[in-house]
Simulated assay, not measured.
Amino acid sequence: MNTRRHKFAVIAAAAVMIAGAAWSARAADVVITGSGGPPQDAQRKAMWQPAAKALGITFDEDTSQSWTDAKAQVDSGSVTWDIVNFNMGEVPQAVAAGILVKLPADIVDRTQYAPGSVSDYCIGNSAFSEVMGYNTAKFGDKGPKNMAEFFDTKKFPGKRGMNRAVKGNAEAAALALGKAQNEVYSFLATDEGQKEALDKLSELKPSVTWWDSGSQLTQLIVDKEVDLAYGWDGRLNAAITAGAPWKIVYQDGILQTDCYAILKGSPHPENALKFLKEILKPEYSKDMVKYVAYGPSDLRAYKSMDPAVLSKLTLAPQNLVGQYPQDPAFWGANGAKLSEAFDAMLLK
C-alpha cells in the first residue's frame, strides 16, 4: 500500500510524535483513496478539502492503482479505507468479488451524469479517454490519425509509450486489425479475437516502452524517451503543459470514467456516505479543471466553463467525435483471463 497521506486536522505536535501515522489514520473521520498524481491533487483541492470544511469533518487519503488493493483489504479483514477510487471498468469485478457497498438509489440524479458514469455501486468523479498522441517536432502535423496508423511502425517509426495492462491495449489492437469501433467487443469476446489481438500487440512489442502509471507516461514524453504514446488524455495534456511539442489525437479514443465507491467493512460507513454525497456536488467538481485536464462526470459542471478550458477536455463536443465508450461488462467477464494472457505475452 502507498502511504502518501495528507492529514487535514489540527493535531498537537506531541501527540503526533507519540502516536505516529497509525494514530493519525484512525483519528480521521473518513479515509478516501485516489489514483495518485495530478488527478488526486485536483480532487483534493477542488472536492475533498472544501467538502470536508463544509461538513466540519477531517479526512485522510491514500493512493491505489488497482481494485485488487481494495480486495486485499476486505479479504484480510483489515479495512482501513472508506471511499475508494475505481475505474468504472473495474467495478463489475469488484462487485462480483463482493467488496463494495450498494449505494442509495437517490444518491445522485443519474440524468445529470454522462452515460455510463453511474452504477449501483460507483458514482463517476471524472471523465477521461485513452488516446494516442505524437511528437510534432518529429512528425509535424502528419502523425498517425487512427489506431491502425499508430501500429504502423514503418510509416511512423519510433518508440511508443503504452500502458503495461491489457485493458485499452486489447481494444487498440482490435482496431489496428481493421475492426470497426462497434465490432471491437464482439471480436474480443471470441477466443480467436483475443489471440489475434494479443498477437498484434506482440508484433508491436519491440517498439514499445511500457509504463505503469500516468505520471511515468508524462515523464516519458517530457524526457523525449518516446515519440508516440497511447494513454490517458489528461497525462498527455500534462506533458504538453510542461512544454512537450505534442499533439493529441482523439480519433479511436476510449471514453472512460473513474468513480467513487464505498468499501465493504468501511471503518466509518456513515461518514463515508455523508462525505461521498457532499464531494459529488457540481459546485465542487467544476473546479477540478483548474488543476488537471480532466473534466467531471456531472454534466452540470460544464455549463459555465470557459470554452478554452473545455476544448482540452474529453467531453468537449469536438473531442467526442471519433471516440467510443469502454464496455465495463466485457472487462468484468474477460478481464482476468485477458490479463493473464497479456502478462504471458510480455514474458515471451
Rank of each mutant, 00 (worst) to 15 (best):
R110Q: 01
G332I: 06
D141R: 09
L280D: 10
G77W: 14
K348S: 00
M147R: 07
A94K: 08
V31M: 04
K145Q: 10
G168E: 03
K45P: 02
H6G: 00
P325Q: 05
V184Q: 04
N163A: 15
P245E: 12
P92Q: 02
A13H: 07
F156W: 09
Y113Q: 02
I57W: 08
R44K: 15
G89P: 01
A242D: 15
S35M: 14
R164T: 09
P92H: 01
L100S: 09
N125L: 11
P157G: 07
G178R: 06
S207N: 15
T314M: 04
L346P: 00
A148R: 09
Q194P: 05
A244S: 15
V10R: 02
N182V: 01
A15W: 01
Q43E: 15
S266K: 08
A137Y: 02
Y291N: 12
A52H: 03
G143K: 10
S78D: 12
W48G: 08
L217S: 05
L338C: 02
L55A: 10
V74T: 11
D199L: 06
G253R: 05
M88S: 02
D41K: 09
S186Y: 01
Q65I: 04
Q112I: 00
R300P: 03
R110F: 00
K274F: 08
V95G: 01
K145N: 05
